[in-house]
Structures are given as C-alpha cells and as structure tokens.
Design a protein around this nucleic acid. Structure first.
Lengths: 148, 148
DNA sequence: TTTCTTTAGAGAATAATTATCGAAATGAAT
DNA sequence: ATTCATTTCGATAATTATTCTCTAAAGAAA
C-alpha cells in the first residue's frame, strides 16, 4: 500500500536535505517516479517527461536517478543493457519478469529469501550486502491466456 | 568436479552436431571456456586468445558465445554492462560476487532455491523458466583479510 | 548589486554489443 | 578433380545505453 504522495515527499526531502537543486525537471522526474506503478527505464522516463518538458535531456534523467540511487531512494534493476528503476521500493527485492508480456512484477513478499541468505552465509562464509534476483517465466495472466 | 577435457569434448560435439564450422579460432575459444575456472567476459577471452591468434576479432568471440548460449552450453551472467560467461556450468545458478576482490563464485550448491521457486509459483502463480541470481558482499578470503 | 563557487543539464564521447558484407569454406554436380 | 552454388565465418562499421565534459545558471558572500 504505497502512497504516491508520501513517496513524492520522501524523494523531495531527500534531495532537499542533500542540498541538491530542485529544478522543474527534477521535480517532474521524482513526481513520475513516485506515482508510476511500473518499473520504467531511463528512455521511458525521458519520453514521458519530454511531453511536458521538450528541452529535457536524457543525461539529466540519468544524473538524477544516480543521485537518488546513491541516497538509497531508487533501486536500479540491471537487465540486459537496459536498466529499469523502482522509486517506490528502493530496497533490494526479487523481480519476476514475464517473458510473454514483458511486465516486471515485484516479488517483495517472498519469505524464503531469508533461508537463501542464511545458507549462503553458512555454506560459503559469504557476507551478503545486497542482491539482485530476477526470475523469468510466465505470469499468471499470460498463463491463463495461453492455457485455454 | 568438472573435467575440462570432457567439457571441451561436449562443446566440440555440440558445435559439430549443429553443423557449425570448427575453425581454429573457435576451437581455441571453446578450449579456453572449458579449461578456465573463472567467469571471463568477452574482452578477457579476446585478450587471452589474441596472444596466440593476433587476427581474431571480438565479434567472433561474441558470435561463438551466442551460438553456444543458444545451444545451452554456455551461461551468460549479465552484470552491469559487462556480461561474463560460464562454460562449465551452463545451467542457471546463483553467483556470489565479492565487492572487495571482484571475484565471482558459483553458488550452485544452495538448496534453498527450491523453496524460493516453490513460493513464487504458489504465491504469484508464476511459472519460472530460468533465473539470474546475484548476491553481492564479501567473500571469506576478504573477510579474513579485513577482520584482523 | 557584484563577485565567487557550485551544480545542472545539453551535447559530445565512450564502450559493450550487434549488424553488415566481402571472403572463405563446404558440398553438389558434372 | 573441378566448377558452381550456398552457407557461414569474421573483420569492420554501426548502434545504443550510459557517462563525461563544459557552459551557463543558481545561490552564497560581501
């Protein structure tokens, strides 16, 4: 139950406290990040913002995303030469990607991750700091469509 | 307990049965893939092969890797704009990447993955076909060095 | 207001990867 | 065995996501 307005305020505050300038381009970007449900990539954000701000540049998108990422307010999902971004759940969590409809789903309710983390620490004596977990397959919607 | 010679023969056979030409460049590449313990990227393979074959091109590396990947004999590990390749364990398995020494470790003995898979199928009704799981952190060697 | 310092952002540059296309190799037909 | 037709190899050129650079603007200090 993510509240877009709260999220917007959080991102705003983070940039403000950091001493970063809150330009109209940046405000529009964090507005977009906090309200969009999906997991857009830089180009999608760019295309969307360009409607309202024809002079905005892709570099601005990337730079602001990097800023927010450094502050831990945005999660980068590193796919094959195509990073997508999550401004609503910035903590590392699994993603499910449908190979049929190409939607990206959050798998942030999976509890068995604890077990994996534990096993990795125990078996390999490896201290995990973060992870990137992507599962490819078919989502329930596409399964229904295909099955019948 | 991977036998490099067996692995080499397997890759060789795959390419042969596929009707692909077995040029000296390709033979050298699959030799390298089957004998190297690590997880090289295209540039590393290129630099290594160039010592013996000064005229080999990066595109040849990429093309042959794509071929082997299609045949399921090589696993691509997609890191941030830098794919690495595993010619010894071509099935999807977790990787542990040390943020200190940047080594890539295989986490192919982790049993809790079954639980995650099960949970994803149950909770999200999502049918997994493959995954890419990367855990970042500190390996046991670097932990020892750092701790004392 | 004027000067000084820092940051934003547009365009240029970079680097990993992929597409193109001439050349070489393979197999068929004579 | 030799020529022809077809495939595919692989070097160079092109592409594309991302990052760097440098000018201009914003804010701070005087």
């Amino acid at each position: 139950m993510n509240n877009p307005e709260l999220r917007y305020q959080a991102l705003l505050t983070t940039l403000h406290e950091r001493g970063s300038r809150l330009t109209s381009h940046r405000l529009a970007l964090i507005r977009l990040l906090s309200t969009s449900e999906g997991h857009p990539n830089a180009m999608q954000l760019y295309e969307s913002l360009r409607l309202q701000f024809p002079t905005i540049s892709l570099a601005t998108i990337y730079k602001t995303l990097a800023l927010l990422k450094d502050e831990g307010e945005v999660l980068e999902i590193d796919l094959h030469n195509d990073s997508h971004y999550d401004g609503n759940k910035p903590y590392p969590h699994p993603h499910l990607i449908c190979t049929q409809c190409h939607k990206i789903f959050d798998g942030d309710e999976i509890t068995a991750i604890q077990k994996i983390n534990q096993e990795i620490e125990d078996r390999y004596n490896f201290q995990i700091s973060r992870h990137q977990l992507v599962f490819y397959g078919m989502c329930w919607e596409c399964r229904e469509k295909t099955d019948r």
